[in-house]
Design a protein around this nucleic acid. Sequence first.
DNA 1: CGCTCATTTGAGGAACTTCAAGGTCAGTGG
DNA 2: CCACTGACCTTGAAGTTCCTCAAATGAGCG
Lengths: 238, 238
Amino acid sequence: MANIDFERTPVARPNETKIFGTVETSVDFAKTFGKDVTLQRALSALQRGPGRFYRDNVIACDGDAADYMFFVVSGVVRSCKVFESGTRNVVAFYLPGDLFGWSDLKHSLSIEAASDTAVLFLKRNALLSLATRNSRVASYLLSATTNQLERAHEHVILNSKTAKCRTATFFKELWVRLGQPKYLDVPMSYQDIADYLGLTIETLSRSITDLERSGLISRVSGRKLLLQNRFALGRMMN
Amino acid sequence: MANIDFERTPVARPNETKIFGTVETSVDFAKTFGKDVTLQRALSALQRGPGRFYRDNVIACDGDAADYMFFVVSGVVRSCKVFESGTRNVVAFYLPGDLFGWSDLKHSLSIEAASDTAVLFLKRNALLSLATRNSRVASYLLSATTNQLERAHEHVILNSKTAKCRTATFFKELWVRLGQPKYLDVPMSYQDIADYLGLTIETLSRSITDLERSGLISRVSGRKLLLQNRFALGRMMN
DNA sequence: CGCTCATTTGAGGAACTTCAAGGTCAGTGG
DNA sequence: CCACTGACCTTGAAGTTCCTCAAATGAGCG
């Protein structure tokens, strides 16, 4: 498939309207790029979407031409690699406001919706040439990339710790990335998290139970958690 | 320490002259940046070094101001994190021709010589402002960063495979990065490799023995290896 | 309620680590 | 020339962590 399929029909699901009834069709770039009106216009001009995807929909396949970059408007996107054996690795999660996709596709990763999402597509070449003319865009692109590099390095370090420590660190980091809300509403499935942490879902579940017994977190309902003791959590993270 | 210490005296070692007697004092940027003379001059103008380091010398500390980027002239550089417990993670190896150091220091990684090395220092700000004026430099910076991001993603994926597979993949990748020489002269210690792969040195050693018994590699002498059967190696890598 | 899917729990086994000892090799000094 | 030393790597045996397989429980929805 040579192009991103913007028209890919989401699989119909019962709660469709709940999720997508209120999606904004215009995106607010002001948070990241300031109030430069010319710049806003330029960005809007090269944007396509937002595309809307249900959980587990494939946004871009391993093997797709990587002409577009992705900007997450809402929901969570995962970048992952699936092997013939059926095992899967989640390489990264992207949250609203994240821009990614410099090289994820060339190297046979697949971009998928980890929850119901809205994603904006930006033609890479256009973005690049805009960057040569606008230093604010250039430095944003660079910092977005280096942030992801840092995150990837953290990820490597994390995956050589114990299951309990990985789990604690993951929830803490997620909580921070989500803006430190009162309750942590985990937006992706435990299977996704397990594949991100290099654990089985059983081990992840046991680790969560263990963290709860230690009084570090508590389950409120379903995947809604309460981080109980941040200092202890920090110590756990080593 | 606010500045990189270019004068840091290497620990004297017996084979000093063997290693550094022939180090070039001018660096050939032509390979990566073409024959643009103006550009060559600009790059030379913002370069410091090459600094020369013996194995295990610290090139830049966790906590140093991250004003400089690094360009490996010869040898191997490791970027690593050491914990109070004494455990260590090697996050990346950099080989001759690699440019790195966008964010490695801010996030408390330490840059160290994994073998005797020569490293060039480039002031980040100067490099950045050069990039805004020269698109060749800009695109080189971007591709260097995205390559490292890709490599980091591969690293994450690798570390959730078996010890034997990690080891095979590591040697294969190293062999490719070194230009596919007849014999693979492993330039870093097995301890460094183990810390990179998230294994103990014992498990690494056992994996190598195992690979040798399987006929995939053979030990020529010390850390000089011969990759015997590339196809089988490829299959091993899954 | 009864379905499905996601998560939790348990028991046994495999992979890796830990601890401890032995081996190898280059440099050093008798 | 040969033993001695220290750094580095290899091997063995026991212990831990995590995985696998199997089953039970729970949550969400018609």
